[in-house]
Nucleic acid binder design. Structure first.
Lengths: 339, 339
DNA sequence: CTGTTAGCGCCTTCAT
DNA sequence: ATGAAGGCGCTAACAG
């Protein structure tokens, strides 16, 4: 039924080994024969069975990509970029979407990618035992987001610096009551919320502004959470005149809450986000831009390099640049409103 | 190095075939032996090599998912839902992201999923030759979006009905000059833009409104395109008082254009979208909601059913329900503005 | 119920 | 530069 390497060999009048060598560009085949074999293979529509070649060679030419939520903009954007790099290099992508706790547990106990992948790209921050499980695969590991992780190449941004410029921007505009909508903590290695919070505290202290715990609210990294958080901030005895949201999606929720309260940004409250979400521009949201697709592509390339040069010491951590994008949701505090 | 089925067999004092049978839940193994083997396998951390078992059995337990742009909300949402269904059933997902024309051509000529998948879920509308290529795989095929396709199970919505209720909503509000931001045509089987346009024309005719070609502009299914389209509509000699955008992302672009022109929805122009994008709520966008994740899950389940019941005739087409979601961007035409 | 015997399709020595 | 033989790890028939 389906055409095998032997069919090609017969049709070309050579042995299977020669076909194998020829098609994979290995030395030991005369140019003429190689050309002929290539032509025959094409005309027969031959493709080597991945199962068979993996079994024989030990290489799978596929990369496992582990994602917490494919549906979220950040992750799908990273995945998109990474997949392009992998497929261009001839690698397939096995996707594992670990949104629910059950899916996640199932994945790490059964570890379906054992013997199935040449490398793993993780877009989630693994817990302690998950790290161990991944390491046991014995393949190169790269991760996006999060702090340094022994045995992993981590691609990310400087969260501290990003959050600093966000808060400093608000301070420079003249704000003194600055709220923060933060992300929930999560796993141990998930340093992002911690770093961004520390930067917030540092800039406040540096500017001689007293920190008011009432102005810090959790927004769960979601639009809905951001909306709830802003609602709580507005209900404070002395509401903030500006808010730093640790993600654009939470910032969008905050804008939504403002609209619901017949308030506007930046007239009543300034809002700055973090990420430069594809729709931040549509909403006119001022934010800290990070290269999302860029991180996916970079991580993928680093992984491929480890595959092609197994001897070379892989980088432990790579930082991508960030920058402030000024749009329309931040302005100096409104003098007509009470501070 | 890695533990094989023979290691387990030795450790358990049985043969490899018995281990194979026991672990896969096949009949012909006493409960006692099965239990013991399961325990031994677990303690050794054994997982069957997918390559080897696929090669021997012909089954791969993996599904190929083909996507035009993983980065776009609609597709990543469908993918998210489908992946969950597949992985719960013990299937892995091989992802192919075919954004660029080169990637797409490469995919359909090399057809890397030959002999690698048990079924294919396509989120793109295949061209004529692409349909042939997919059929040649000899596995069940399901597709999301698009018209009926022989040999495929197609899951989708009633585009006609959806667009009809959108336009009718505008008419009912009293609008007579109704613009449309449409999606570009694309491949032959891509009936969505055609259907939605036809519904637009039908409702206009049905309401005794003359169709003005100047009020129809292409928005390319993107935010930017929607913005450009709305800008053109506003420049018309007699601009529309309401606009139907064939997707929420184009509608968001339209809202952006309005803001840039110091206009507002619905005060100056009403805007209705299509999809119920996750951020439609944030923007207060009135729209036609379609079950996006629902379609992904449904398609995945139909595929699994075909796998478990190969005899049964698969459904040719499945329609999911849609409904109008009233929010804040539509209202009766403003009497203070000239029609 | 369990073990034995052949492959699945390819890659990799080792000869020639 | 090429061919022959063996094996990758597992499953599926066939015996017992």
């Amino acid at each position: 039924m389906t055409v095998s390497i032997i069919d090609v060999a017969h049709a070309a009048g050579v042995s299977a080994s020669t076909v194998s060598r020829a098609l994979r560009g290995r030395p030991g085949v005369s140019d003429q024969v190689r050309e002929q074999i290539t032509a025959v293979a094409a005309s027969l529509g031959y493709t080597a069975s991945r199962s068979a070649s993996s079994l024989a060679s030990g290489r799978t030419f596929t990369i496992g990509v582990v994602v917490p939520y494919v549906g979220r903009w950040f992750f799908s954007t990273v995945l998109d970029a990474a997949e392009q790099v992998f497929s261009k290099a001839g690698y397939d992508v096995l996707l594992y979407n670990l949104g629910s706790p059950e899916a996640r547990k199932r994945f790490f106990t059964k570890l379906p990618l054992r013997k199935r992948v040449d490398a793993v790209l993780s877009l989630l921050i693994p817990e302690e035992e998950e790290v161990t499980a991944l390491r046991s695969l014995g393949v190169p590991l790269t991760s996006i987001v999060g702090g340094p992780l022994p045995g992993f190449t981590v691609v990310g941004i400087d969260d501290r610096a990003g959050a600093e410029s966000a808060v400093r921007h608000l301070v420079n505009l003249g704000h003194r009551r600055i709220g923060m909508i933060s992300g929930s903590s999560g796993p141990l290695h998930w340093t992002t919320p911690v770093d961004r919070r520390q930067a917030y505290l540092d800039v406040l202290a540096d500017s001689g502004i007293e920190h008011d715990p009432a102005l810090e609210v959790d927004g769960d990294y979601t639009v809905k959470g951001g909306e709830r958080a802003m609602t709580r901030l507005l209900a404070a005895s002395r509401p903030p005149t500006a808010v730093f949201a640790q993600s654009d999606e939470m910032a969008m929720g905050a804008l939504r809450a403002l609209r619901r309260h017949r308030l506007r940004a930046p007239d009543d409250v300034s809002v700055i986000g973090f990420d430069d979400h594809e729709l931040a521009d549509v909403l006119g949201l001022t934010t800290i831009a990070q290269p999302v697709a860029g991180q996916g592509a970079e991580a993928a390339e680093l992984l491929l390099r480890q595959l092609s040069e197994p001897e070379a010491e892989p980088p432990g951590q790579v930082r991508m640049p960030i920058h402030l994008v000024l749009r329309e949701t931040t302005a100096p505090p409104n003098p007509r409103r009470p501070q």
